[in-house]
Simulated assay, not measured.
Amino acid sequence: MRQWWQQRVPLLRGLVLAGGQSQRMQTDKGRLHYHGREQREHAAALLAPWCQEVFVSCRAEQAAELPAGLQPLPDQFLNLGPMGGILSALRHDPNAAWLVVACDLPFLSETTLQHLVQHRNPARVATAFQSPENEFPEPLITIWEPGSYGVLLQFLALGYSCPRKALINSNVELLQAPVPQELRNVNTPAERDAAQQELAEHPR
C-alpha cells in the first residue's frame, strides 16, 4: 500500500520567486550576495536536492540576465506579485507539486527544507510553515500541490491575489519550523546590511 501511494504522489518541482520589483530594497533582491553568489542562485541550489527541476520565477525582461544554469519561468499572470509566479508554475506543469521559496530568505537552510519535504502531506492543498510572527501560514516557503491551482484561481476570480489568504482558507498541512529564525525575510537596505554582517560572522 505504501509503495502504491508513493508511486502516485506528484513529483516535486522547485520555484525561486525572483520577479518582484524590490521597491523597498531599491535594488533587485535576487541579485544580492549573502553566500558568495547571487541569492537566486543560492536559493535554486538549496531546492535542487529535493526537486526534479528548479525554475526561477521572473519577469520576461529578467529571463535573459539570469546566471548560467538557471532555468527562467517568466510570469504568465502579470502584476499579481508572488501569486502570479506560483500560478505560472502551476500552469507550466499542473501535474506537479511546486516547492516555492522566495529569494529574500538568506537564512534558509537545507535542514529546514528537508523538514518541509519530509512532512509534506500530498492529500492537502499545500504544506506550509507557520509564520514565527503569528499563527498564519508562510506562503513563500511552501509546497503547493497540483490541487492548489484551481483553489488559487478561485481566489483570484474573487479578487484576492494574496497566496496567504488562500492558505488560511484552505485545507493545508501547517508545520512548525525547526528554526523559526530561518523564515526571516530581508526587504530593506538596513535589513540587508544586518543580514550580511550576521551571516559573515556565522556562515551557513
Rank of each mutant, 00 (worst) to 15 (best):
G147D: 00
A194M: 10
F129V: 07
N169S: 14
G36Q: 04
N171V: 03
A128W: 03
P67G: 04
N187V: 13
T27S: 07
H42C: 13
G36A: 05
W98N: 02
F136W: 10
S22R: 04
L70R: 02
E173Y: 10
L87E: 02
A18N: 08
L11H: 11
A200M: 12
N185D: 13
E133N: 13
L174T: 07
I168K: 03
E191W: 12
Q181E: 15
R2E: 06
L167H: 00
N185F: 15
A166C: 01
P163R: 04
Q21A: 10
P146H: 09
A102K: 00
G19M: 01
Q181D: 15
S109L: 15
M1L: 15
R40W: 08
Q6T: 10
E191I: 15
E61A: 11
R8S: 08
P122Y: 04
I86F: 07
F129A: 06
E41V: 11
N187C: 15
T188K: 05
Q76D: 08
H35S: 14
P178W: 05
P10R: 02
N95H: 14
A157W: 00
W144R: 04
G20H: 07
H119W: 14
M25T: 06
F129W: 02
H35T: 12
V179T: 08
A48E: 14
A48Y: 08
T127L: 07
L113P: 02
R2Q: 15
Q71A: 05
A200T: 10
G19C: 06
V101M: 14
L70C: 06
E41M: 10
R124I: 12
F136C: 12
V16A: 01
G30R: 01
L113S: 01
F136A: 14
L15S: 00
Q23E: 14
A45Y: 08
L15A: 01
P122Q: 05
E145D: 07
T127Q: 07
A63I: 13
S148N: 09
P74E: 05
V9I: 13
P106K: 11
S88R: 05
V125Q: 06
Q181R: 11
Q3I: 07
E145V: 09
E41N: 10
L113D: 00
L80P: 02
N121Q: 14
E145L: 10
S161N: 04
F107G: 04
L156Q: 03
H33S: 03
S148Q: 09
V101W: 06
S57C: 03
A45V: 09
L73E: 04
E191N: 12
E110N: 12
A102M: 07
V125F: 02
M1Q: 13
E61K: 03
S131F: 00
N171T: 09
H42W: 14
D193E: 05
P10G: 11
Q197S: 15
G20M: 07
C162P: 03
E41K: 02
E138Y: 08
F77S: 12
F136T: 08
P203W: 03
Q3R: 14
N95K: 13
A44M: 11
V186L: 07
E41Y: 01
E173R: 14
L158N: 03
M1G: 14
F107H: 05
A96V: 13
L158M: 08
L15T: 04
C58H: 03
T142E: 04
Q197P: 12
T142H: 07
V56P: 09
